[in-house]
């Protein structure tokens, strides 16, 4: 038999899984470029690394979605991280090893990893 506290725990745990069927406006969005160019450049392992990291850290209100080609195929794999109210940061030429840092510094702590961003890459 479940106690009321246990029910509340189930509620919270399941809510994490179903919450974005309710209201997705407040979510942090990770958008991975998954057109042919992105996939060829290795976008899939990058996306899986994001999911893995989110899973490990038990992050709520983060959605991972995909998008098509935005025209800068030479910079793939590209990922946009959009924190509501803070605008969009575009990361380029990613590999799975770079992902944990983006999740920790940007998604958790709110500090974009500028050296991975499109601005840093294009300045070189």
């Amino acid at each position: 038999m479940k106690s009321i506290a246990e029910l509340e725990a189930i509620r919270q745990k399941t809510l994490e899984r179903v919450a974005y069927r309710k209201d997705a406006d407040s979510d942090i969005r990770v958008v991975v470029g998954m057109a042919t160019c992105g996939i060829a450049a290795g976008a899939r392992p990058v996306m899986l690394a994001f999911m893995d990291e989110i899973r490990k850290r038990n992050l709520q209100n983060v959605t991972v979605s995909q998008t098509g080609c935005i025209g800068m195929c030479r910079l793939e794999p590209m990922v946009d991280v959009i924190v509501p109210g803070q605008g969009k940061v575009t990361y380029v030429k990613l590999n799975p090893n770079m992902v944990p840092r983006i999740v920790t510094e940007h998604i958790v702590n709110g500090n974009p990893v500028l050296e991975y961003s499109i601005g840093a890459s294009e300045d070189q």
């Binding site: 009321i4 029910l7 189930i10 509620r11 399941t14 179903v18």
Partner: peptide
């Protein structure tokens, strides 16, 4: 049942 509970299910009964 967990999904029902997540959407405030059995809260009224509690």
């Amino acid at each position: 049942i967990d999904e029902y509970i997540a959407f405030d299910g059995y809260k009224a009964l509690e």
